[in-house]
């Protein structure tokens, strides 16, 4: 097959990859904040639950997590289509890593900030939302950018539960045509371009958020 025939097929797959990425990123982000803040501030039983979630999803294989959600949950009466299962699995997996980023960034805010907030009699809620989180947000962005790229790379796992993503398309094309060099070369390039685009996006986000904060002296 000509390159001009291969490329559109691969791009179809890339589109699916992008879709899964865009759906699972917000899931991972939300879970990162919920689990990270719960682990820090919630009452003990909840805190323990967050901890178990974080340790478990960081400590086991993402592929097996995906298999569980797609193949095993139906035995418990929970049938998810492949797309939903993928988004949930990837969101849960990367969310667990993100939770540690949130926790670390919150803990990195100097203790004096917390003490000033107590002395001014802010509620625990305001302390967090008005004082601590705005200062820790900027520190979260670069590691979040890395995790977003990890997430993008992990999307290739969904090809193993029959989703026609970029990896899946590449694999079937390669099996059919045996043009492994061209196909996998193109696939590498497409993944690389997507990763660069995300890295750029997060750097832009950091610069934008940083502009206000430079004046605020949060970055030197």
């Amino acid at each position: 097959m000509e390159l001009s025939e291969l490329t559109p097929i691969l791009l179809q797959g890339a589109w699916i990859t992008l879709k899964i990425l865009c759906l699972s990123l917000p899931v991972a982000g939300a879970l990162a904040f919920i689990a990270g803040l719960t682990r820090l501030f919630a009452p003990t039983p909840l805190r323990q639950m967050a901890r178990v979630y974080i340790e478990f999803f960081r400590g086991t294989s993402a592929l097996i997590q995906l298999y569980w959600i797609y193949f095993v949950l139906p035995f418990f009466g929970l049938n998810l289509d492949a797309m939903t299962a993928s988004v949930i699995a990837l969101g849960l997996n990367i969310g667990a890593y993100g939770a540690e980023v949130v926790r670390g960034s919150v803990l990195a805010v100097p203790k004096g900030q917390y003490e000033a907030a107590v002395a001014l009699n802010f509620t625990p809620w305001s302390r967090l939302w008005r004082i601590i989180l705005p200062q820790s947000l900027i520190n979260m962005i670069p590691p979040f950018g890395n995790l977003a790229i990890e997430l993008m790379k992990a999307t290739s796992l969904v090809s193993l539960i029959t989703i026609g993503d970029l990896t899946y398309k590449a694999k079937t094309l390669a099996d059919a045509t045996l043009q492994v060099g061209e196909i996998f070369g193109l696939v590498l390039l497409i993944y690389f371009v997507m990763a660069q685009a995300m890295a750029f996006l997060f750097r832009w986000l950091e610069a934008r958020l940083g502009r206000g904060l430079d004046r605020g002296g949060l970055r030197s």
Binding site: P110, Q113, A116, A119, I131, Q135, G216, G217, L218
Partner: peptide, 15 residues
């Protein structure tokens, strides 16, 4: 509410 404190290292909110 009865107390207010000023700190050695200011602890102003930088943002």
């Amino acid at each position: 509410n009865h107390m207010g404190m000023v700190f050695q290292h200011f602890n102003l909110f930088p943002h």
